[in-house]
Design a protein around this nucleic acid. Structure first.
Lengths: 254, 254
DNA sequence: GAGTGGTCTAGACCACAGA
DNA sequence: CTGTGGTCTAGACCACTCG
């Protein structure tokens, strides 16, 4: 490794390894050489290689399994289209679910998700958005979504009990058209969606559940659905590994 | 520093320093003690403090000026509302500009921006979105926005020459209502907006211009404006330090 | 030139995975 | 038990800022 164009030898090491990966020297899902070996090949100390690999981890290009080694990532960028034309096309079996499955099919991955339904005391910010009192009991539908058995999304969707209790929203399968169709059936059809998007390091729980490193980032998307009368009938907290997703929004002018 | 709850002593060090900042021990804009001193106070090596500070930099809580020291950040989260109700309220002097000024006023910061106008050969992705040939000449309006003299946004807005050449879009000041009003005057009123949102490490240029560290992230937002006839009349590439911004989108159901 | 952060090497020890 | 990455200390040198 000669001297540096930018600063930081580790950046140059990162560039070299990135180039190797992109040239196909290490295919998707394959193991990289161990750090010690890379260090020797490149003529630097292992700590420098370690730092370089963290750059690539941050970019989402590689994935480290401690004790096993460093792998080239399998998952390409997943697209999420929040509103607009594509939504309608993929609406067969319910909003997010149908779109997610279609998108993963497009990428050649197998989609799977795990759903649980519970009643919990609403977190403060959720309660506030629902216009409920802090600590009020609400229905929560939690979903973890996988692509080829790697977790790619966590979501927790909250509904007011007076609407959701005893309805199909409290069942694992919400039926045709998904949760929004059920809300409509119940006389609370959403008329306006709002999403607040934030980017932050994952919490420790999130890092574990989504198999992320601490120097990666997640999108935290908080979606609210309001009826025409202005009542908020759903708050959905969605957490996505930022390096795996691209978001799309569209809306009419004026 | 005793043993760790999570792993990594540097995380604990980061927590300690974060707590000090949040308790007000180090006010906004003030210098932290130097790394050597923090290391001594906390009984760890300087390299460990350095790593801990990188965590706080990643979160946007502190800002490092090499050779000067480490400061507590001055800029709180800035909100950007892409569509929906708030847009109309703040539309006095043109879209983004008016909303940006209003938001910074709300935060008690002084807004300023620098605009340049040029004709350039369109980058490949911009050309594609504009439906132009690669390398076609287009008009570009570049803007850097500041809050209290810290850069908080870069944007490059591209227009087809056949629409923009010789119009007020080629002037530094686009006049009342901003660029979209001028497009409307010219018979190309935008009817549909689309934004693609991505998160990535800053390029070296971006890191310099936005005074960011390499382990921070930017939002890259690519906005396109289409007329009712389906022609794309603007492509705007917006780069924001991710830790400084929260994005909001809203749209009607169906 | 002195102060301050950024990085590198060297070597050690720890934690986790798998045979 | 061995292999692999994660981190820590120690000490050094460099780059940038400011007087």
């Amino acid at each position: 490794m000669s001297s540096s164009p930018g600063r930081g030898q580790y950046r140059e090491v990162a560039d070299t390894i990135r180039a190797s990966i992109e040239s196909g020297a290490y295919p998707r899902g394959e193991l990289l050489p161990i750090e010690e070996q890379l260090a020797e090949q490149l003529g630097v100390h292992r700590a420098t290689v370690n730092k370089a690999l963290k750059v690539l981890v941050a970019e989402g290009l590689v994935r480290v399994h401690r004790g096993k080694g460093t792998f080239v990532s399998k998952i390409p960028k997943i697209r999420r289209d929040s509103a607009g034309r594509q939504r309608r096309d993929t609406r067969e079996e319910g909003q997010a679910r149908g779109a997610f499955d279609a998108e993963l099919r497009r990428l050649g991955l197998t989609a799977r998700s795990e759903v649980t339904v519970d009643q919990v005391s609403a977190p403060a910010d959720v309660a506030e958005r629902l216009g409920a009192e802090e600590g009020a009991t609400v229905l929560v539908r939690r979903r973890v979504m996988f692509g080829d058995d790697e977790p790619v999304q966590m979501a927790a969707s909250y509904f007011p009990l007076d609407i959701a209790a005893g309805s199909q929203l409290a069942e694992v399968d919400t039926g045709p058209g998904g949760a929004y169709s059920r809300l409509a059936d119940l006389g609370h059809a959403p008329a306006l969606f709002t999403e607040d998007v934030d980017v932050r390091p994952p919490t420790e729980d999130e890092a574990r559940a989504l198999r992320m490193a601490e120097d990666q980032r997640v999108y935290e998307i908080i979606r609210t659905a309001e009826t025409a009368t202005g009542r908020t009938v759903e708050v959905n907290v969605i957490v996505l590994p930022a390096h795996q997703w691209r978001l799309r929004f569209s809306w009419p002018a004026e």
